[in-house]
Design a protein around this nucleic acid. Structure first.
Lengths: 212, 212, 212, 212
DNA sequence: TATGAATGAGCCTTCATTCAT
DNA sequence: CATGAATGAAGGCTCATTCAT
């Protein structure tokens, strides 16, 4: 039914490159602003009016760049999890020895903390929001995927004799927990670099799991 | 009411004949598409985005062919009522005997049903929309005009002794009602032709009002 | 989880008879008022503020008596269709000859028109609203049920040789259509009684379908 | 802040001892139920209806045991922080050597985790809610007090040559962070006792700050 | 003409809280 | 103390229309 009247001459044009690019960059701004506000006030406590103020758009204009508030939260999680998951899965398939793999995972987590600091804050704070809402199964799945990859790496370390771990699931949560909690004090532009953070935490964790 | 169809008088200035023709044919397409959607979903429930989808135009483009949504509804009613009213008024001034005049009115109504099926559906469904909005007085007037012509024909039949009708107003509503309701099942390409429909209903109606 | 703290002594009380009755009567008022407004302006065109004005309640108070606007529409249809369906189904199972059964169905329809005039108006106007919304399948089903019972009665008349009908489905729609359309002019307190209406329409319909 | 727990001094006037006791025990139940719900769904996402369901009270009844929702949150924090703060301040004034003091602080934190698990969850999740609302300055102060006591203990350890800490503030946050994060997996009735948890974390922390 | 970003009024609904009984 | 009807502010979202490009 669509595009019935459009003349053949223009049928294949669609939005111009330029307008498309402007839309995308504006959407990016909206997303960044929303992430900031969500990180600061929390998703539920953030009103559309807060987003209006943060973006400088008006009500309708804002909705030009998002379907609804929930979509923003989902997108924020994708922005955080996709690169992280990719990096960790890459580590999983490369031929590292187990301690090195764990260390690299630490670096990947630290990179997220550095490059997606606000997203990380949102991710960690809104877990309950996401957990309690059927609509966000996809995000829950990404989180599970991350845990599974790390679990696989640890199990390989156990299998090859590098590690000695009583409860691998718990170790995964512990490793993630160390980094997750760091979001409360780590600042991308602070004294400690992401690499230092990663190495310090990797040292601690490896000291705890390495077979003696 | 802005942006009425440009009057022919303006055609020789500004836009070329060709571009003028293209504009009109596009406008026609918009109107037909809108009528279809209004008939299907109702005027209020139809959004501009529905019209965008139905016409294949874009938001701004669509507004080149209409001043606003309300104008479309008005125009749809004009398209239906003008020929019908003309036909019925013609019958009124011609020297038919009363039963024949009624029969011809029936045919006129059936023709509307056949030739302006979607418009008829819109007309019947949106009556309340039109009734409650001051802006549509013009349309209400056309409807009243139609009723008045028919009423005049019936009264003449009473006066000349052909008919015996207790409440002429009610009889008008009854006659219109029979045809109006037929829009729910009559299809221009269905089993029953418009002429058959007209004759059947005329038979029933005349049987009811003819002086015994 | 509920009622954990409630002392045993009061566990079986629940709302008092009195308060329950007041709630119900207030809800009834809301429903009647809403039906009136829906009948007048249409469901979609009726805003919550219209209902507030019609009921004399305030926003929150109104929502005390309804889950949402849609629920009202559903309830209105139940109020109309349940007694009608019951009456027609009763006719179907009683041992009437076919013409009598049809006449009784006409009376049942006329009773609805008389006793549930506003509900009837809403029912007839909002059919499209209901048709297009998955949430109202239950109502669509009631309508289908009604049509089926009438269809069954007509088919029995054909089978027993009383009627001669080319297209029974169409005849059902025609019978319903006659009565449905009458809502446009029939008034419970008008010149014509519901019984007269029923008999007149039954006469017309039976004249059309009786085997000659 | 209205309707605080009535002070004991008022107990002898008006309500009997018995009714007073019943009131307090009900209030206790309300608090426990609310804490559970807040921990599960979050403070903002918890509605009064959730509390009604969780307590088994009715709307009006519930409000007899609380001034408003915010008061519950404040009270929950008092229940958690008062004993913890008392325990830690006690440690501070007792003549322990610095590593022992730290270890005892760890045990105090672990006890909170064990005895006030839900309160802890609420405390950690709702920090932002509390931070952004002027009304909760008192709670923010308690948290600051806790940090200050721990900071004092650590600084004493630095002063007496036991510890070598570059950034004492950060060390405080680190120590609290370890325990705080544990609420995500620690269960009062789980494999690991609170004492074991405390000792493990104390070992790790002390290993990190002890002067070599 | 055409585009689509932007506007802002207005809609339905939720919810903490109050208060007459 | 208890009830539950009522309040009304505020929230998320829709949508017809405008306008700079």
């Amino acid at each position: 039914m669509a595009r019935k009247l459009k003349s053949p001459a223009m049928a294949d044009r669609g939005p111009t490159q330029r307008s498309r690019a402007r839309y995308d960059s504006r959407r990016e701004e909206v997303l960044v602003a929303a992430t900031r506000v969500f990180a600061d006030k929390g998703y539920d406590a953030t009103t559309i009016d807060d987003l209006i103020e943060a973006t400088g758009l008006q009500r309708g204009g804002l909705y030009h760049y998002m379907a609804n508030k929930a979509e923003l939260l989902a997108e924020i999680h994708h922005r955080l999890m996709k690169p992280l998951l990719a990096e960790v899965e890459q580590i999983d398939v490369e031929p590292h020895d187990s301690p090195t793999a764990v260390r690299l995972v630490g670096h990947a987590l630290a990179h997220s903390l550095r490059d997606y600091n606000d997203e990380m804050i949102v991710f960690l704070h809104e877990w309950r929001t996401i957990r309690n809402n059927p609509e966000w199964e996809e995000i829950r799945q990404m989180r599970r995927d991350l845990e599974h990859v790390i679990e696989r790496i640890l199990r390989r370390g156990v299998a090859d004799g590098s590690f000695e771990i009583a409860d691998v699931r718990l170790a995964v949560l512990g490793l993630l927990g160390m980094f997750n909690h760091a979001h409360q004090w780590f600042r991308p532009d602070g004294r400690m670099s992401a690499e230092e953070l990663a190495d310090n935490f990797a040292d601690i964790f490896l000291a705890g799991v390495t077979r003696r």
